[in-house]
Design a binder for these strands. Structure first.
Length: 491
RNA sequence: GACCCUAUCGUCUAGUCUGGCCUAGGACACCAGCCUUUCACGCUGGCGACACGGGUUCAAAUCCCGUUGGGGUCGCCA
């Protein structure tokens, strides 16, 4: 059995797009589930637009997503050289040109001395005559005619053969393209630089890639590639063209949109496994109703055969929900480790605090988080006094007659509590509520506001326990003083 | 414009290949209710789709043709 080899071949001309991530994921999953190899190849044949820093960003995005190999220091970029760095097409020019020249020698490609102006004129003519293709006159030029051009710059064009080309696609089925629809495309520029189509095929052929999995924007190109594979005498790989990722309006996910950049999701507090899970579902579905998948489960269950054909829209609400589910699946320890940087980033002093105490906070917040960033609003008061009180809540809970008298009683009762536990606090509140003949809410909400500055948050007795008796009482005193200064409660 | 791909609830989808088990299932969202000290979680219920038109068949979401909609490709970009 031949080793399964897949690849992701992004061009370093911008950030790592969400669509790139989908392609990378599918290729990586197929490689992993077959114990194969996943190749990273930077398609930087466009010298003008390719930049080194973009290559670094691709690496950073893939690393964050966890799309790499556990046993390697980075990506298993170059399986045949043992180098873990990615292949770079810019370093393989000679190879492509050599193969192109071979095609010329074999009569499968030819030199074309057309100028850009000539081409434009011919295209215009073809349009007017409603021809699908325009053929270069150099296609059938005699060797003498070619020789007569001497050192003039030329492009190398592929001589598209007669007939019909079939792309056997694992998800799309057999796609037939009449070769008459395909131009003699350029494979080497007059500058000597190879063009994408040539580089891809030479690389996939020489690297022994078995599955070419990519977006269906390449479906039409695939016909050209099949022709090249055959002309070059390489084994044609299996193709699988997946649907594209659309935005919420059903349009192509624009690079300008927030979230187009994979790393946007990291800054927004999403777990990489959430994004992977979501992207997997956007174009693939299991045979049962499950939607929540760990990365290992995806590796086990994913299959090209069950891939969908139509493009899926990115649904923010759904990925938010999914992220909440993944957050809940995390152990407290693991979640804390992910939360720490977020807390630090918000300027909260977490490093002087005992880890056990931090873990307790995680425990009472975990089920409320949809993103990691939510922890700041959820737990900032543990690290600093509330600097302001929600105005609406203050109106509602503190302005009532007797609210401050209640708080006075509660603060006093707190001093007397023997064991500072949630149960003990609960008992204190229950006792007073009963005496007043009211619900717990009348007492809980004003206290919550005093302790956290907010109207919502974790369970009051749990958070108060973690805050500590002194802090709680101090914050209640402060609240009472505040209300008094505002000329509120007169009791 | 030509060529290629595609079409099930608002969204993601199961079911389509191998017609009947589909008065079309699930999830997100939304609505109502329950739980509850708040929010969230969880639970219960509700709303809600086979794009349209022709065939084929005893029977079609499922097969065939056409129409329409959506997407993609037509570069010396990838």
């Amino acid at each position: 059995m031949t080793e399964v080899r897949t690849r992701i071949a992004p061009s370093p001309t911008g950030f790592f797009h969400i669509g790139n991530a989908k392609t990378a994921l599918y290729n990586w999953l197929v490689a992993r589930q077959n114990n194969g190899t996943f190749i990273l190849r930077l398609e930087d044949t466009d010298v003008e637009r390719s930049r080194d820093e973009y290559a670094d960003i691709i690496g950073e995005a893939l690393t964050w997503l966890g799309i790499n190999w556990d046993e390697g220091p980075g990506f298993h970029g170059q399986p045949d050289t043992g180098d873990y760095g990615p292949y770079r097409q810019s370093q393989r020019h000679a190879l492509y040109v050599r193969e192109a020249e071979r095609l010329v020698t074999e009569g499968k490609a030819y030199r074309c001395f057309w100028s850009l102006d000539d081409i434009e004129a011919e295209r215009e003519l073809a349009r007017q005559e409603k021809r699908a293709t325009c053929r270069s006159p150099w296609r059938d030029a005699t060797p003498e005619r070619v020789a007569a051009e001497g050192d003039a710059p030329y492009a190398i064009r592929f001589r598209v053969p007669e007939g019909v080309t079939e792309v056997h696609d694992l998800v799309q089925g057999v796609v037939r393209v009449d070769n008459k629809e395909v131009d003699d495309f350029i494979i080497v520029r007059p500058s000597g630089d190879p063009v994408f189509h040539l580089a891809v095929v030479v690389d996939d052929g020489l690297m022994k890639v078995t599955h070419v999995i990519r977006g269906d924007d390449h479906l039409t190109n695939a016909a050209k590639h099949v022709m090249l594979f055959e002309a070059l005498g390489y084994t044609v790989p299996k193709f699988a063209h997946h649907s594209l990722v659309h935005d919420e309006h059903g349009k192509k996910y624009s690079k300008r949109l927030h979230g187009a950049n994979v790393l946007d999701w990291r800054t927004d507090g999403y777990l990489p496994e959430t994004l992977l899970n979501y992207l997997a579902l956007l174009g693939w579905a299991p045979s049962d109703d499950r939607e929540l998948f760990t990365v290992d489960e995806l590796i086990k269950e994913f299959s090209l055969e069950r891939m969908g054909l139509s493009a899926g829209r990115f649904d923010l609400k759904k990925i938010q929900w999914l992220n909440g589910q993944h957050i809940r699946m995390l152990s407290r320890e693991a979640l804390l480790d992910r939360l720490l940087p977020v807390l630090r980033n918000a300027g909260l002093d977490v490093d002087s605090k005992p880890r056990d105490w931090l873990l307790e906070i995680v425990a009472i917040c975990q089920e409320k988080l949809r993103t990691l960033n939510d922890i700041v609003a959820q737990a900032d008061f543990f690290f600093a006094e509330p600097c302001e009180y929600e105005e609406k809540a203050a109106q509602k809970h503190w302005a009532k007659d007797g609210a401050m008298a209640d708080m006075r009683l509660l603060a006093d009762a707190m001093r007397a509590v023997e064991l500072w536990t949630p149960d003990a606090l609960h008992a204190v509140y229950n006792a007073l509520a009963e005496r007043l003949g009211s619900g717990l809410g009348r007492l809980v909400h004003p206290t919550r506001l005093a302790l956290t500055g907010k109207s919502v948050g974790p369970g009051l007795f749990e958070l108060a326990t973690l805050l500590g008796r002194e802090t709680c009482i101090a914050r209640m005193e402060r609240a009472m003083t505040y209300v008094e200064s505002m000329g509120g409660d007169q009791s």
